[in-house]
Simulated assay, not measured.
Amino acid sequence: MDLDVFIAAHRPEWDRLAELVRRQNSLSGAEADELITLYQRVATHLSVVRSKAPDPVVVERLSALTAQARSAVTGTHAPAWREFGLFFTRGLPAAMYRTWRWWVPTSAVFLLLTGLLAAWVARDPQVQATIAAPDEVRELTRSGGDFESYYSSSPASSFAARVWTNNAWVAAGCLLLGVLLGIPVVIMLGVNAINVGISGGLMFAAGRGDVFLGLIAPHGLLELTALFVAAGTGLKLGWTVIDPGGLPRGQALARQGRTVVLMALGLTCVLFVSGVIEAFVTPSGLPTWARIAIGVAAEIAFLAYVFVVGRRAAREGETGDLDQQYAGDEAPVAA
């Protein structure tokens, strides 16, 4: 092969490809098609030169040109740290915002039932007597008793890890088991509502309602909100089984299921924060108002994260689902 003739014959194509690569961010549709065609041709030229007349200068130029063209055609892979940042600044808050119509009513029902149960227990001594023996109730509610000492029963770091693990499992259960028509989610919420309502009722009956609120509020606001988000999302997953919303049931469940898994990862981080507050702030010697203020600040920050950051991302089209390159293609569905 005469290399000089080969270069003279194909140099215009190489120069044109180099020009298109330089302008890759402003190409028209026809130019983008031309870029792909020329990339394939120049890759073939490189193969021919390597096999027939491996001139180092020509091989180096064509290798660099095909590498640049390949990057322009296929795109560059986003760094992991960037995808991680986008998940927490767009994907996760958008997913939480898009499910607020499920978890906000869920939280309202939970708090209403818990409040009614606590009031019933606090006002009726007979109900209190059916819960536990008088000595056990006194041990639970007295100053330094079981309820109060629970938060300092272990070193703060190990207590935080235990609380975080437990809450993460509960949240994951609410999210993933929601596919069973939401029945396990309702059961788990009911158990938690009963526990909180009974404890609160007994503490208020003993005249120590301020202590109860001072111990529950710092971490409980954020912790319960995270669990409400998990429960509401799990209930939505269960409803998707019943009504896939015009999509094939498998496709609808796959889409909602991916969001559920991603939200489980995000809520684990939220529950880590509430676990740290429960271990280091709740049993601390800070005044009650200061401990509650920390809990309120954490709750406000979370709600702003959902209803400000998440709302903005959702309005810009973010769904909280995986990118298409990870989620895979979906078959089109007729409206």
Results as ranks from 00 to 15, higher is better:
Ala30Ser: 12
Pro248Cys: 03
Val270Gln: 00
Ile300Trp: 11
Ala290Phe: 02
Asn195Ala: 13
Val73Ala: 11
Thr259Arg: 14
Ala132Met: 11
Pro12Thr: 15
Ile183Pro: 05
Pro218Gly: 10
Ile198Asn: 10
Phe204Trp: 15
Ile183Asp: 11
Ala18Ile: 06
Trp169Ser: 13
Ser47Gly: 15
Gly207Leu: 15
Leu17Phe: 12
Ala168Pro: 01
Leu113Lys: 03
Tyr97Glu: 05
Ala95Leu: 04
Ala8Lys: 09
Ala205Met: 07
Glu60Lys: 15
Glu318Cys: 08
Leu113Asp: 10
Thr259Trp: 03
Glu13Arg: 14
Val21Glu: 03
Arg70His: 09
Thr259Ile: 15
Trp102Asp: 01
Arg311Leu: 09
Gly144Asn: 12
Ile198Gly: 10
Arg70Phe: 02
Gly285Asp: 15
Met203His: 08
Trp102Gly: 01
Arg61Leu: 09
Thr74Val: 11
Pro56Phe: 10
Gly310His: 00
Phe159Cys: 05
Ala171Thr: 02
Ala119Gln: 14
Gly190Met: 08
Gln325Leu: 09
Ala335Gln: 01
Thr233Ser: 11
Val21Asn: 06
Arg255Asn: 11
Val270Cys: 02
Met1Ala: 14
Gly201Trp: 05
Thr99Cys: 09
Leu46Phe: 09
Gly257Pro: 12
Glu278Gly: 01
Asn167Ala: 04
Pro184Ile: 07
Ala314Trp: 04
Val196Asp: 00
Met1His: 15
Glu31Phe: 07
Thr225Lys: 00
Pro79Glu: 03
Val309Ala: 09
Ala8Val: 02
Leu177Pro: 06
Ala129Asp: 05
Glu223Trp: 05
Ser63Met: 11
Glu148Asp: 06
Glu83Tyr: 04
Val58Pro: 04
Val261Ala: 15
Ser199Tyr: 01
Val196Gln: 01
Leu65Ala: 09
Tyr326Met: 03
Gly190Thr: 10
Ala252Cys: 08
